[in-house]
Structures are given as structure tokens and as C-alpha cells.
Nucleic acid binder design. Structure first.
Length: 566
DNA sequence: TCCAAGTGGCC
DNA sequence: GTTGTGC
DNA sequence: GCACAACGGCCACTTGGA
């Protein structure tokens, strides 16, 4: 019996009205068991708003703009008229719900009497949409979406739109869905978590768990060409903090500013995957070739950080790497223009033997054994500090060499995202500058009603003008957002605009990790990972930092001269 | 042929 | 990617 | 301690239209 899509929508609504994680986990479990076995995978994906596994290249390639174009014919109104219906809505999908509640669908476009949508139909249509490409495909995709929306009630429409934009915002995401799976089959969460790491995809895991049960999960093993979820690091302030957390039994490794890669090798066959399990083998042929020649093991799964390098061998800023990443056109040309290098730091499989039960120290030892000398694959600089001071010196060395900082790894730690966390700790350098708020954007979701995203400007000492160098929505408490909103509304003359401009009066200290060259900001530089750390009411406008200072920081950090980007 | 808008995926 | 919130 | 939801800048690619 096909489950009605309305059933899923109702679970979404109940989740949205629930805060307790225990209860959310319970709802996730209920949802998975409420549908038929062949709907479990679809249900798992639709519930968290990720229709397709990252490892597959499939994507809807449809978003808010496409939804507006789809809604126009359904209601026979232009976008701006529809948009007027949505004032006060908490977010985009809620606004769509309001439109469905208040406006009649066009008879000529949508049939009056229709069958209720089923889970399988909705999912199958999304698969169809994802499969479309080439000339005219935009219209075809929107037509398929329109057919679904025609048959949807207001709540179903909102649920669908949340899937299109990929943000459910009902409190259940991947993590809680995994907990729900564990609950549904009465398994240990650790078992489900381990299984997830190995299969890499919640949909696949949900079917496996619900239909096969715990015994199959227990038997899962690491497999070649099935990328696994990479282990992540928690942020800490400095080396002493990491030292305390890991009781002095740790390795410190350089943290390079590139992209994570997982390398799978069986003989001459090599594939490369990103952190989100996308395959990028075709973009990095020199890495593939280097794996063939430099990795002496017959089969291996390795992890490392890929970075772009200059002619002199120096590591280049992150955007240089992005020119290579996921590139399919002109690969040979870029290969010469922006060569890459991989700094290896882990080995998870060696000659058919899983190293998941081995400690970090053991895995590193094996890694050093399988790597032959060469220029493309090299070991990540690593040290085993005997004292905190030695560790701190290693951190300074990493920063001086132009890198992000360090990752601290507990020597006895296994390769698991461990429930306790903290097996890997990242330590990065943050700088701060004084900037002034020149505008702010209204927030959505839990930030509805607050000005939430602040435009930040520095002084250009040549022209004397204020120049925007970035935006931030981070670093303030709810209370502070409320206060700043009031203050900004006091200053502005156009509180109705989406972007509220204000005279430059509120000066803030802003932390950031890097200055990057910017093709879009007028000063040619932008802050990376900006967050507000404090208000500086005692400062005056002529005391804020200058554009020229930011450019100097760029030069200092990257080793590259500042220049206006193309 | 080139450009802009839209979308997805890195950090 | 960073941060604050709430369980 | 953990999961989630707020959203940042940049680059590659696709599509549709001038």
C-alpha cells in the first residue's frame, strides 16, 4: 500500500513543533516504521531534505528562483504579487504555504480533482527532475515540479519546497535521523553510527537497518571505492587546551588550507573523493598518477589535504585550489597552471587489511611505510611534542610557514567520529580588526524579526571612503541581536528594505581567519569566516581599520602581493 | 560568442 | 567553514 | 557533549538569452 505524502508532511509538522531531542528521535523512528519497506529510503531522504546521496552526482539543480517561476503560472500572478502574500513569513517555504492557503490555483494549469500525492510518486518525480539536463531542461524541470505542486496542499507544498532548497528546519537532520534508525531497530547508536561511517549515506543505511537488522550492520566492513565519512575535528583555542583535553598523549600535524581528499587504490585503479563523498578523480589526474607510483601497497585507502602549489613549491591560497577542484574543462591546461600536492595524514586500509581498529599512532606508522618518495604525495608535517612549549612552538612554525594552524590527534585514538568527540582537535589562528556596520539584512527562521546579517566596512585612506569588506551573522547572542536590531532601526531611514542601510556609527571588533582576494568587493579584499567578537562604542569612525591594512594582512598571510582580482 | 543568473560544492 | 542555543 | 540552524566568500559549471 503506497503511503500518502501527507503522512511524511505530518511528521515534518510534528517535528517542527517539538524541541526535545528524545522526542524528535522518537518521531524519526516512527516515520521510518510508518512507511512500507520500499519507501524507507525515500522517507529517510525526504525527511532531512537531501533527496540524493552526495556520492552520486545527482542534484535537482532547482532552487528558490525556480520555485518562483513555477508558482507564477500555478496562481496566474507575477512573482512580486505572490511575494506580497508572504510578508511576515518565517522563511521561504512558510511563505509558499501562505500563498497556497490564500490564493486559488489556476484551473487551466492545475486540474481541479486530483489523487493525493504518494511518497513514491514525489520521490520518483525528484529523480526525474535530477536526471534532466541540456537545452530546455530548465522548463522541463519546472514543469515536473509544477505538476507536484498543483496536487499539493499548503503543508505538502511547503514540505516539497523545503526539499527543493535542501533545508527542512524542523529540527531533525542527519544526526537525529541516525538516532531514529537506531531506535527503530532497537540497536546501539554506536553500531548505527559506525555503519553510517562505512556506507556513507543515510538512505542506504536506513533500508539496510530497517530491512536487514543489526546483524548486517555488525558485519559491515570498510570497502574499496565506497568512500567513508571522514573523521572531523573539534575547534579549541590553543595548544595548551588541546594538551589538556588529550592528556599530553598527542600528535600535532600542520593544518593546511586546502580540501580534504580520500584516496582509494586497487592496483592501478584509483579514485578520489571529497569530504562530502563527491568523486573528483577526473579533476586531479596528477594525483591519480602519483598514487600509482608512490603508494607501494596493492590496495589502500588514504586521507590527506590537497593544496595548490606555486612554481617554487610554496602552498598557494585556497581559491587557487578551487580552480582545479571539480573542474572538467581545460584540465590539462590547469594542470600546468595550478599544480597540486597532497599532504597525507591517515591510512585506513592497507593491502586488504582494515586499520579502523588501529590507533592513530599505528596508522601513521603504516602510512609512512606505504609512501615512496615523490613530489605530489608527501607526509603532513607532524610532531610528537614532549612538552606544551614544544607544541606551542610547532604551532608558531606552522603559522610562520603560512598555514592555518594545527590538528591535535590523540595517539591512542581510533578512526571514528567518537561519541565523545575530541579525538581530533583543530587549532587555528584568528586575527581581529575594527570595522563599522554600514547595513544589515533581515534574518529568517529563528532570526525572524531581527536584523541578523551585518555589512562591515573599512576605511580607504586614499579616497577617504568607507568600503565594504564582508558580512557576518555570527558572534552575537539572541539578546544582542535584539539590541542591535533596535539600534539599527533607530538609525535607518528605510526599515522596510530587505537590506537596511544605516549611517556608519556602530563599530565592532571582528575576528576572521583570513583575508582573501575578492572579485566582488570594491576594495578587492574580503574577510573569510568573519564573526563579531565585541562592540567598540568608545571607538570613533576615524579609528577603524583601513583597507590598506587588510591588503597588508593578505600579503603577510598568503605571501602573495595584493592585486585587484579580475 | 559572450554574459548573467542560477545552482552546487569547497572551505 | 564559525557561532550560539537548547537538550 | 552533541546536534542543529543561522548564514559567510569563492569557484566551476549549466542554461538561456543578447
Amino acid at each position: 500500500m503506497a503511503t500518502s505524502f501527507r503522512v511524511l508532511t505530518d511528521f515534518g509538522l510534528r517535528m517542527a513543533g517539538t524541541r526535545s531531542r528524545r522526542a524528535l528521535r522518537q518521531l524519526a523512528a516512527e516515520a521510518l516504521t510508518a512507511v512500507t519497506p520500499d519507501e524507507v529510503e525515500q522517507t529517510a531522504r525526504l525527511l532531512i531534505g537531501k533527496a540524493f546521496p552526495a556520492a552520486e552526482q545527482a542534484a535537482l539543480r532547482l532552487s528558490a528562483a525556480a520555485v518562483w517561476r513555477t508558482l507564477e503560472p500555478i496562481f496566474g500572478q507575477p512573482k512580486d504579487v505572490l511575494q506580497r502574500q508572504t510578508t511576515g513569513a518565517v522563511d521561504f517555504a512558510s511563505g509558499v504555504r501562505t500563498i497556497f492557503l490564500n490564493l486559488p490555483k489556476q484551473r487551466g494549469i492545475c486540474a481541479e480533482e486530483t489523487e493525493a500525492l504518494t511518497v513514491g510518486e514525489v520521490y520518483a518525480t525528484l529523480v526525474q527532475i535530477a536526471a534532466l539536463g541540456g537545452g530546455g531542461s530548465r522548463g522541463e524541470k519546472e514543469l515536473l515540479l509544477r505538476e507536484l505542486l498543483c496536487r499539493a496542499d499548503p503543508d505538502e507544498a511547503a514540505f516539497l519546497v523545503r526539499n527543493v532548497v535542501g533545508e527542512m528546519r524542523h529540527g531533525v537532520n542527519e544526526g537525529l535521523l541516525l538516532e531514529g534508525i537506531a531506535l527503530a531497530i532497537d540497536a546501539d547508536f554506536a553500531l548505527v553510527q559506525r555503519a553510517f561511517m562505512l556506507v556513507g549515506d543515510v538512505g542506504t543505511l536506513a533500508v539496510l537497518a530497517l530491512s536487514e537488522g543489526t546483524a548486517v550492520l555488525e558485519r559491515l566492513e570498510i570497502g574499496l571505492f565506497t568512500p567513508l565519512r571522514p573523521m572531523l575535528a573539534q575547534a579549541v583555542d590553543d595548544v595548551p587546551a588541546a594538551w589538556v583535553r588529550q592528556a599530553g598523549a598527542l600528535a600535532l600535524e600542520y593544518k593546511l588550507d586546502g580540501a580534504r581528499v580520500q584516496i582509494h587504490k586497487r592496483g592501478g585503479e584509483v579514485r578520489l573523493y571529497t569530504r562530502h563523498l563527491m568523486e573528483i578523480t577526473a579533476s586531479l589526474p596528477e594525483v591519480v598518477e602519483a598514487v600509482r607510483t608512490q603508494i607501494t601497497a596493492e590496495t589502500a585507502i588514504l586521507e590527506g589535504e590537497v593544496v595548490a602549489v606555486g612554481a617554487d613549491g610554496a602552498v598557494l591560497p585556497f581559491p587557487e585550489l578551487m580552480r582545479r577542484f571539480r573542474r572538467v574543462r581545460d584540465v590539462p591546461r590547469l594542470l600546468a597552471e595550478a599544480p597540486v600536492r597532497v599532504y597525507l595524514f591517515d591510512l585506513l586500509l592497507r593491502d586488504g587489511r582494515s586499520l579502523l581498529e588501529s590507533t592513530n599512532a599505528e596508522r601513521w606508522g603504516e602510512l609512512t611505510q606505504v609512501l615512496a618518495a615523490g613530489s605530489v604525495l608527501i607526509l603532513t608535517p607532524r610532531c610528537l611534542p614532549v612538552t606544551v612549549e614544544e607544541g606551542a612552538a610547532f604551532f608558531d612554525q606552522a603559522i610562520d610557514a603560512g598555514h592555518e594552524g594545527l590538528v591535535a590527534k590523540r595517539l591512542e585514538g581510533l578512526y571514528t567520529p567518537g561519541v565523545r568527540g575530541g579525538e581530533w582537535l583543530k587549532i587555528k589562528e584568528a586575527l581581529t580588526v575594527e570595522l563599522v556596520i554600514t547595513a544589515a539584512e533581515w534574518g529568517y527562521g529563528r532570526r525572524t524579526g531581527w536584523l541578523s546579517n551585518y555589512h562591515l566596512a573599512a576605511r580607504d585612506i586614499v579616497t577617504g571612503a568607507l568600503v565594504e569588506v564582508g558580512k557576518t551573522f555570527k558572534g552575537l547572542t539572541d539578546e544582542e541581536f535584539a539590541e542591535v536590531t533596535t539600534a539599527l532601526l533607530d538609525l535607518t531611514t528605510d526599515p522596510e528594505a530587505h537590506t537596511v542601510t544605516v549611517p556608519p556609527e556602530i563599530i565592532v571588533e571582528v575576528a576572521f581567519n583570513q583575508i582573501q582576494l575578492s572579485p566582488s568587493y570594491p576594495g578587492g579584499v574580503a574577510l573569510r569566516f568573519a564573526r563579531i567578537v565585541r562592540f567598540r562604542p568608545e571607538k570613533t569612525l576615524d579609528e577603524i581599520d583601513t583597507l590598506q591594512t587588510l591588503r597588508d594582512i593578505y600579503t603577510m598571510q598568503s605571501g602573495q602581493p595584493w592585486q585587484q582580482a579580475a
